[in-house]
């Protein structure tokens, strides 16, 4: 494995917020550097999409709240409070959308899709999917090794060694010291089944 690829330089103010927050003369180099790693997305579109997602969320909660006993305005039932909140959320979300459309500069950009971020999210989703299906130590060990190689830019054998040692520490701290029982998973059942079938041969 070659030398680790260099990361984009940090934002001048150390922030990861909208590029628009920075001085105009600083935007261009930051944008160029970050574009190698992330996809530039219009801040306005981002704001509108988020606002609309909040509107959808509000509409969903308002609709479901209406299906609950509503009570009266004076003596509210279980549906009253969520309904009132959903309406408030909807109003605020619409205001956010309107503000974004009218006030946010269409040329302002944020960067999404950084390689390491995407890898970390995919690895986390993989763990969530496989945690009880496979052996948890095996899954967490693989997760650690993958992240050490991809995000930590470590050589694979060091990553495997590090992950193995890490799992021993995890077992000692969580299982032995704190009594947290992590799932052995179905994988060992399959292996035991396969072994018992293969045993007569």
């Amino acid at each position: 494995m070659g030398p680790p690829p260099s990361h984009p330089p940090p934002a001048p103010d150390g922030s990861s917020g909208p590029v628009a927050d920075r001085a105009p003369q600083e935007r261009a180099p930051v944008a160029e550097a970050q574009s190698a790693w992330g996809r530039p997305v219009s801040l306005r579109i981002g704001e509108v999409v988020t606002g609309l997602a909040l509107v959808a969320c509000a509409a969903f909660f308002a609709w479901r709240a209406l299906l609950l006993p509503f009570g009266t305005v004076g003596l509210p039932g279980p549906g009253f409070f969520p309904f009132a909140l959903a309406i408030a959320l909807g109003v605020l979300a619409l205001a956010i959308v309107l503000y974004a459309v009218r006030e946010v500069d269409a040329l302002e950009r944020i960067f999404l899709g950084h390689r390491d971020v995407l890898v970390a999210i995919a690895a986390l989703a993989g763990v969530a999917f496989a945690f009880e299906r496979g052996d948890s130590y095996l899954i967490l060990g693989t997760f650690t090794a993958v992240l050490l190689v991809t995000v930590g830019r470590t050589r694979w054998w060091r990553a495997v060694l590090g992950a193995g040692l890490g799992m021993v520490v995890v077992w000692a701290v969580f299982n032995r010291a704190l009594g947290v029982r992590l799932p052995a998973g179905q994988i060992w059942g399959y292996i035991a089944g396969a072994a018992s079938v293969a045993a007569p041969f």
Partner: peptide
Amino acid sequence: GWLVPSILVISIIGVYSVNYKP
């Protein structure tokens, strides 16, 4: 990049250990 896996593993085990629900 080396700290990230450790922090995430602690987070995952921590979250799971509350209710033992994936």
